[in-house]
Design a protein around this nucleic acid. Structure first.
Lengths: 131, 131
DNA sequence: CGGGATCCTGATGGATACTG
DNA sequence: CAGTATCCATCAGGATCCCG
């Protein structure tokens, strides 16, 4: 997301945290994990996911889910019906990620307002020093 | 980071989680919080931070710290000496964020290897279906 | 229905040079 | 020492159209 390096730089065993954030920080990933976690252990169909993730485009949902699958956080199951139905669910690994992710969500819900206030306060003092 | 919207779209009270991730997901933010948290309650000087964050440029460190300050997660103290010395430390809010962030870090350290393996497995089956 | 391919945009963040 | 300003490469991600 933010960490791909420019060249074939020598060392880059990027700390696991950054590598995780590069995945989780992706626009729709955390929401997808949340929705899938809420439904677990049930599967969720592509169209349902779309409905539960307001604003997501087909493409981005598709891309997001592919990443989750590639990372072993979710599994994909296709029903070979005529218009195919595709179902997703979190793996054990995905469910385990939900835990710290939920903690972060809780923090966000509890404290983002404070951050917003801090922003306002900060911006108010736009360039002043005294008066 | 990933969520600024294109137009003045009507509604966008983006869920707090996304707004938080847009901050925390920034390349150097989580590392800066970590380093500051490790030093807490001591302050850390700009140059020290740089040293403890391998690879960060002055500009990016500066930008990152400004965001933390603007968000009320850190405070800046300037010693008006001739070459000025600037010190940073986390606020209460910043320290409270460290908690879920640390949880995420722990998860990353414990499980990123599994994600890596999942990636390899996945890429191995490049396009196969049976065989 | 689910998803692939393309095209295009803006934000991210690196390099570099200058200043108080 | 710490910070700012400029320039520039890259990439996430949205829109759109086509496919099985």
């Amino acid at each position: 997301m933010t960490t791909r390096q420019a060249r074939g730089d020598l060392f880059d065993p990027l700390c696991p945290t950054r590598r995780l954030l590069d995945r989780v920080g992706t626009k729709w990933t955390s929401m997808a994990v949340k929705v899938l976690a809420e439904a677990a252990p049930e599967e969720v169909r592509f169209a349902d996911l779309r409905r539960r993730m307001p604003g997501v485009s087909q493409k981005m949902l598709s891309v997001t889910l592919q990443s989750l699958v590639r990372d072993g956080l979710a599994v994909r199951r296709v029903e070979p019906t005529v218009p195919p139905r595709v179902h997703y669910r979190l793996t054990e690994l995905g469910l385990s990620l939900e835990v710290p992710l939920a903690a972060l969500r809780n923090w966000a819900e509890e404290h983002m307002a404070e951050i917003d206030r801090a922003n306002e306060d900060h911006d108010a003092r736009a360039g002043s020093g005294a008066a």
